[in-house]
Amino acid sequence: MQIKIKSLHYKYSETNFSLDIPDLTLSPGLICLVGQNGSGKSTLLKLLADLLPAGDAIKADGQALSEYLASGRLSKIAYAFQDPNDQLFNSSVEKELAWSMKQAKLPEDEITRRTEAALKEFGLAEFRDLNPYDLSSSGKKLLTIASALVLDPEVCLLDEPLMSLDYPGRCLVTRLLEKRLAQGKTVIMITHDMDWLSENCQEVYAMSQGQLVYHGPVHQLFSDQELLDRLGLLPAKTWQLSQLLGLKPEVLSLK
């Protein structure tokens, strides 16, 4: 799915914040958004999920986004919230995973098959009967991502998917995202994790005060100190250490 943005303007009625994106085309692959809190990353992600109204400013495969999503929305675009408490509401982990598939009216046996697969893949099988609110913060985060991926959508919108995850959880999510990307799907994610970014992402979009102020290679962003200061970002730890040792950071991957 190709997503095109043209003259996108969004303003919250209760604040002075406004988001303005004049022109942007997003093709399948990994798209990472960085920027300080309040820069507009989550607002853009919600607009791309049609959770906030964008009018005709966002088009998916040439069609206005809301029209494109009018049928089969859940298998086209999935969204995982930054705060799992904003997303999880079912009484058990198993029901939470099955919920979106029930809304999409998948056959019962298919729902069971996919639920079992997700429980196993995300290491949540032993917690299947637990209330999602009783999971660890890492477990809750994994459940929000699992619930978003279970319908195998074309586009996955993930708001800080690595936040709160322990190391095995981060490795798991990284592997699953790589798998989806290899299938030609789109993953649009917000992250503050510059180390993950430098190891896993080629190009990055940076936002500040509701505007896209940079799009390009990650290593070029890390090389631009003035831009980093403006964005309130620090480069990846490996980048900082490479500079300390007088090495070329872009050739030193720790993956």
Binding site: P168, T238, L245, L254
Partner: peptide
């Protein structure tokens, strides 16, 4: 289950 600091890995 545990990662290492970037300095250690480097």
């Amino acid at each position: 289950a545990f990662d290492k600091p970037a300095a250690w890995k480097m």
